[in-house]
Design a protein around this nucleic acid. Structure first.
Length: 717
DNA sequence: AAGGCAAATGTTTTT
DNA sequence: CATTTGCCTT
């Protein structure tokens, strides 16, 4: 057998990982070290060298994009597409399991996925139903609470409320939420994992079947797994199966949404005898960039320890630019982009990264002014758009009329005289009869419990849905989609919305029809609709529009993970912004911010610019931030300050207005001060005037604090 | 049922 | 500052 193709192109560490015979393998893959390559080659190795049947392999990723990439790269390497292998996201795979074993999982056959938008609506509804004050119980925080517990594998009945009345109420809502989902056959994202895990535990024969089948598990981005995801994997791996996990503790940036970096350490404990392979050779960046990244991340405690290196060029130092405000910062970046473009770099080879989305605005304005095409990653996904959600809700109702979330969304969209009163009555009935809203409607109409007008409108609506359901059985997916958009009047409804909005919405709806045309179901026509609906729920749809134009890439640091660009501009490297001020106080969060910085630096292949603004308008307020501590962690020989040249000099007027604004505190930014209790520190920020003036001081001992200047009695040192 | 107005709110995001 | 939301009015 010719295995040279599989191993030849790899370095020693990669080879060790790819060809390991160990039952459990932990690959610590630094940024740009060929992580996906190792996964793909390892699968090829298993198939072609070890003779493992494809059907014995399961590969798990976090995003559909990663799953697709893995599949296509395996196909490329092997020149064939292995059949029977499961490659997918945690959610996709568990969903597949639950669909197969719906009965054993205690679900209705046609259960639907509740996305976070639907979930929030449901929570709001429950709060109203329970007559809870939304100011004390904010819907968002309840949603957060529920998802948090689900990610930890806890149902309402498992939550310990410590007899605390507030906590008790939360548990009650969680319980009510579970009941409501159950009643309408809906499953949220967390529930997919939770239920799939329970399926393992409750149905040993099913578990046994899958343990026998999937003797080879591979997991990508392992540092991002949460408690329930890891628990699900661990059970599936059992005692004898081969499990390979690939991850990087230094790139764990999703702790805030439940990812457990600790799972990496836990792994070697749970699977004794684990082989650990570190991939430290980087094929992406210059050594100067890597030195900077290494130096920054070295400030984090409790790392597993990795140091990136390259045998490539040293490269130029990182350029640091201090704009006098955010416009100046943006101007500098755009100017550099253009200068790189005139040196034969594509715009698409350059990316502007930032900590928070709000920063993109000024950058966009400057790009527009300069006539430079750009593309923003992230933002609202295709299937999250209002008009698309409405259309999909109709498709869902046609597929299964018990779908309450879909029912609620479109029962009166477009308006058809079914007001709040009527819907309220339907909800009440549904709750009392413990049934879906659709069935509740039938009951109410039958019992003559509604006014004539309401009954007529509801009947007409239900007839419409029945017509759609009928159409779904006879038409192709595309014809069906067209039928629904016309029959429900949705196309016209969105078309007449004000301004360009209406047009954009119509275009999106047409795009949805396109998607139905291009959709390739795995099964036959009879399952096509269900499959399409699942895709709409679990796959964001391709985020990137017009890939043809050469455009500068704008995105947050989070969405940049996994990508690389010849030139990277990291904007807003300021205290309070990056690290974000929300993250400075909570323990552990600063480390995550630093990892985010590490992620940002390591996106750059050849050139890296760090920029910040000495003054920035932020939520309508002027703020003065010091340069980010992360910048100060970069060794001197890796970074140099850009000399302010004539064209981007800070105007005198700006400097004067700065001074003239005059915070009458007698303090200056950056000044060392002494406080009677907190000791010595540095002034980071000053806000407000006179007796309202507040000062932020970073104390040597106590960290950063906001003080009212009038009472703080700060003494200049 | 739509439109107007005040109030709240504003890291990071996939599924 | 700017956008979204809920509430109130017509």
């Amino acid at each position: 057998m010719d295995v040279s193709k599989i191993l030849d192109s790899l370095n020693p560490a990669q080879r060790e990982a790819v060809s390991s015979d160990n039952k459990s393998l932990l690959v610590l893959a630094g940024a740009g070290s060929g992580k996906t390559r190792v996964l793909v080659h390892r699968i090829a190795w298993l198939l072609q060298v070890q003779g493992v049947p494809a059907s014995a392999i399961m590969a798990v990723t976090f995003t559909n994009k990663a799953a697709r990439e893995m599949r296509s790269r395996i196909g490329e390497l092997l020149q064939l597409t292995p059949q029977g292998m499961w490659v997918g996201t945690f959610h996709g795979l568990t969903h597949r399991l639950l669909k197969t074993h719906w009965r054993d999982a205690g679900l209705p056959e046609n259960f639907q996925i509740l996305d976070s938008d639907d979930q929030l609506r449901m929570v709001k509804r429950l709060l109203k139903e329970h007559e809870l004050d939304e100011t004390r119980f904010s819907p968002k925080s309840i949603q957060w609470y529920i998802n948090g517990h689900k990610d930890e594998g806890r149902r309402a009945k498992h939550v310990d409320h410590h007899n605390d009345p507030y906590e008790k109420t939360l548990v009650n809502i969680y319980q009510a939420y579970e009941t409501a989902c159950e009643r309408s056959g809906q499953v949220d994202f967390g529930e997919l994992l939770l239920r799939a895990h329970e399926l393992w535990l409750k149905q040993p024969s099913i578990l046994n079947h899958y343990q026998q089948r999937f003797q080879y598990l591979l997991v990508d981005e392992f540092q991002d797994t949460n408690t329930i995801q890891y628990a699900w994997l661990r059970v599936l791996a059992g005692n004898g199966n081969t499990i390979t996990v690939v991850g990087d503790d230094d790139q764990s940036i999703y702790g805030w949404r439940g990812a457990k970096i600790e799972n990496i350490q836990q792994f070697s404990e749970d699977f004794p005898g684990t082989t650990i392979v570190k991939l430290e050779q980087n094929y992406r960046s210059t050594s100067r960039i890597l030195d900077a990244a290494n130096a920054v991340i070295a400030n984090n405690p409790d790392r597993l320890g990795k140091e990136l290196w390259t045998d490539g060029e040293r490269g130029d130092p990182i350029q640091l630019y201090a704009g006098f405000n955010e416009q100046d910062e943006a101007r500098f970046i755009v100017e550099r982009i253009q200068s790189h473009v005139s040196n034969d770099l594509l715009r698409s080879e350059q990316a502007i990264l930032y900590r928070s989305n709000a920063q993109s605005r000024v950058l966009e304005e400057e790009l527009i002014r300069a006539g430079t095409p750009y593309r923003i990653y992230g933002g609202q996904r295709f299937y999250d758009r209002l008009e698309i959600k409405n259309a999909v809700a109709y498709l869902r109702l046609a597929y299964g009329s018990d779908d309450d979330a879909a029912f609620e969304r479109v029962v009166n969209t477009p308006t058809r005289g079914i007001g709040n009163k009527t819907v309220e009555a339907v909800r009440l009935r549904a709750r009392e009869a413990n049934t879906s809203m659709w069935r509740a409607c039938l009951q109410l109409i039958e019992a003559g419990a509604l006014t004539n007008r309401a009954a007529t409108s509801l009947s007409k609506f239900m007839e419409l849905i029945n017509d759609c359901a009928e159409a779904s059985r006879t038409l192709s997916l595309e014809e069906f989609a067209n039928f629904v958009l016309e029959a429900t009047d949705l196309m016209a409804f969105h078309g007449k919305e004000t301004g360009e909005k209406g047009q954009a919405r119509v275009e999106n709806l047409q795009e949805l029809v396109n998607a139905t045309r291009q959709f390739e179901p795995e099964g036959d026509d009879s399952t096509a609709l269900r499959e399409f609906l699942d895709t709409a729920a679990l796959d964001a749809g391709d985020q990137q529009a017009d890939e043809y134009t050469d455009a500068v890439q704008l995105m947050t640091l989070h969405s940049a993970k996994g990508l690389e660009f010849p030139v990277v501009y990291l904007a807003g490297v300021e205290e309070n912004l990056f690290p974000h001020k929300m993250s400075v106080e909570e323990p552990g969060r600063l480390e995550e911010e630093r990892r985010l910085c590490y992620v940002g630096i390591t996106r750059a292949m050849r050139h890296l610019y760090l920029t910040y603004a000495e003054s920035r308008r932020w939520y309508g307020q002027e703020s003065f931030n010091a340069v980010s501590r992360f910048v100060r962690e970069i060794p001197d020989d890796c970074i140099e300050e850009v000399r302010i040249n004539a064209s981007i000099t800070r105007p005198l007027s700006a400097r004067l207005s700065h001074a003239a604004e005059g915070h009458d505190t007698g303090l200056v930014l950056g000044q060392r001060v002494l406080h009677s209790v907190f000791g010595e520190g540095v002034v980071l920020n000053i806000e407000g005037q006179g007796s309202n003036a507040r000062v932020q001081v970073n104390f040597n001992q106590e960290g950063s604090k906001w003080l009212v200047a009038a009472y703080a009695n700060l003494e200049a040192v």
